[in-house]
């Protein structure tokens, strides 16, 4: 059966991508809230925010955190799509067919990565219109893309758990709200140094801060410190734990 894994996953990924192409509004709505935050923070609040030693426009300071918010809101659609599949008869049909069983999940994972990358491109283009510039060469940009894909992969597997275990549509997508607000208590909007003690302690040690810092350093051509490694460790850690739990939930679901 596993010899068909790649072909089956490709066929099922083609199916979910068609869903997205037929309702491209999900990519726009995913990008809508991050773009609104971008406008709000840059044009309304940005004048009053000091970012310390960071030089350059505030939009460039803000963009990395906004990209993480984009992914966090995008994966709620992943959980939603998986949940809908499980509700309908089509999932039963797939399960009763001689296909590689994990391919049903992997198709959603690949679709999630492609859809989130599309939303990220939209948000970056808006940021460019608002004055975001980066002198970074291809290598740092590739590194940024790599971090974003890894982060998407980690959150997508979290979304798989939500989609597999949710009892209602609302439950399937609501899990992403805390993830969307995590960047607010991080270095995404203001430097953590300005925060009071306990909040600062949380902000400095949660995953978003190290990921945001790593992306910011890469895009502004500053030396990349330990942030990059901490960021990668967080992403891989979340990915492994979420993957294992999602697989347990999946087995329970199909047995």
């Amino acid at each position: 059966m596993t010899s068909h894994f790649i072909g089956d996953t490709a066929a099922l990924t083609g199916r979910s991508l068609r869903h997205i192409l037929r309702s491209p509004d999900t990519i726009i709505t995913t990008a809508l809230m991050p773009v609104a935050f971008l406008l709000l923070f840059v044009d309304v609040l940005g004048g009053a925010i000091t970012t310390g030693e960071h030089s350059g426009p505030y939009v460039s300071y803000l963009l990395p955190g906004i990209l993480l918010i984009t992914i966090a809101s995008g994966i709620s659609y992943t959980a939603y799509r998986l949940f809908l599949d499980l509700q309908g008869g089509i999932f039963q049909r797939f399960q009763s067919m001689p296909i590689a069983r994990a391919s049903v999940l992997w198709a959603h994972v690949l679709t999630s990565i492609i859809a989130n990358l599309a939303s990220i491109v939209v948000v970056v283009l808006v940021a460019v219109l608002m004055g975001f510039r980066s002198g970074a060469g291809p290598a740092p940009w590739l590194a940024v893309a790599g971090i974003l894909i890894l982060f998407t992969l980690a959150l997508t597997w979290l979304a798989m758990i939500a989609g597999l275990t949710a009892k209602s549509v609302d439950g399937a997508s609501a899990f992403s709200y805390p993830l969307i607000f995590l960047p607010f208590i991080s270095s995404a909007f203001v430097p953590t140094a300005s925060m009071p003690g306990p909040v600062r302690a949380f902000a400095q040690n949660q995953p978003v801060t190290s990921i945001v810092n790593a992306i910011r350093e890469l895009l502004s051509q500053q030396p990349v410190g330990s942030d990059l490694w901490i960021a990668l460790a967080w992403c891989l850690g979340i990915l492994v734990v979420a993957y294992v739990l999602a697989m347990v939930a999946y087995r329970r679901r199909i047995s």
Partner: peptide, 11 residues
């Protein structure tokens, strides 16, 4: 298997 609810992809 043709399940109780039409197992077709509506989209």
């Amino acid at each position: 298997l043709t399940g109780q609810f039409a197992a077709v992809d509506e989209k």
